[in-house]
Design a protein around this nucleic acid. Sequence first.
DNA 1: CCTTGATATGCAACGAGTTGCATAGCAGGA
DNA 2: TCCTGCTATGCAACTCGTTGCATATCAAGG
Lengths: 183, 183
Amino acid sequence: MALEHAILVSLLEQPGSGYELARRFERSIGRFWTATHQQIYRVLKRMEADGWVVGRDVGQDGRPDKRSYEVSAAGRETLTEWLREPVQPEAVRHDLAVKIRGAAFDDAAGRARLVDEVRRYRAGHEETLARYLAGERRDFPAGGDLDTGQRLQHVVLRGGIAYERMLLDWLDDVLETLLKGLP
Amino acid sequence: MALEHAILVSLLEQPGSGYELARRFERSIGRFWTATHQQIYRVLKRMEADGWVVGRDVGQDGRPDKRSYEVSAAGRETLTEWLREPVQPEAVRHDLAVKIRGAAFDDAAGRARLVDEVRRYRAGHEETLARYLAGERRDFPAGGDLDTGQRLQHVVLRGGIAYERMLLDWLDDVLETLLKGLP
DNA sequence: CCTTGATATGCAACGAGTTGCATAGCAGGA
DNA sequence: TCCTGCTATGCAACTCGTTGCATATCAAGG
């Protein structure tokens, strides 16, 4: 639905090619909007056909050519229209929560396996939090002067940090609860 | 991907019809796995064909007949196999975060509109939190005796509560940040 | 009596998203 | 020299998910 809009925002922040967008989605934007490179290439084509973005081929030395895109006036208008629409409730798909409730119907060995999985999962999110915090120190040093765009990027990053902290606390709670069932 | 598994868990907790499942997905399970009734009916058919669930028609007085399902031994086995697989990283799609970063490319009037939207959105999540807390008081009173299944349901609910609280705090941060840009 | 609304199920069409594969240039190391 | 890996783009096939619509029963209210 709104992959187009996520791409528009990303290209307004910084023009780039499909490949570069895919990289950004893996890193920054992917915090709140995931997409694979195939999806991005396909949508970029459609967006170019609709006149939302303008692409041009850029030759590079030592690398294959790339096609770099920037947002057109029409694309910008499309974005601001979308910004004024109501926020859609997000579609939640949380694998782990289903598994935790499902663990009630598995045996002790199965729950022990799940404990290991939760620990692995927790370690991954600890890394994510560390990465966010490092990014925050790098891009938003205390006392630095920020423009509107940077302040907005920062508040979104703070959201990611708050989410990860909340998640880590909850995972501790989950581990404790699971372990109570395995004396 | 795992709608099947979410349905299996829900049916193990309590057998029921497609309609009832859709209701539960709106309420309880929908906290971490959304699905529409069409999807549920379609998947239930496939699951019955695969022998994961057994359906039987139940006549009701004063209401149309329904087809009630319960999980078969094969379905239970399928679920425990899935429980032992690694947890997939969840696909995040967070509309609002895209809009917040997009607000940098809108004018003051547009950002003012977004502030209203964020307030509306925040009010919705305040209601959600209140509903979770009421559910917690109802289903998990302090000092009550809980079996494994109930303890697991409770820890998942606590996750929902923690998420909503984190979100409300973050939305306050967002509002403050947006308002700084509108003197 | 007629409308509205809840229960209960479903089809058809479309759009979104994933998976697997293919291509091609060039860098760097074994 | 060959293999691996990164940059860079893309097709084809498939599954998943959403939207709009349709149907039928019955209760309650005006």
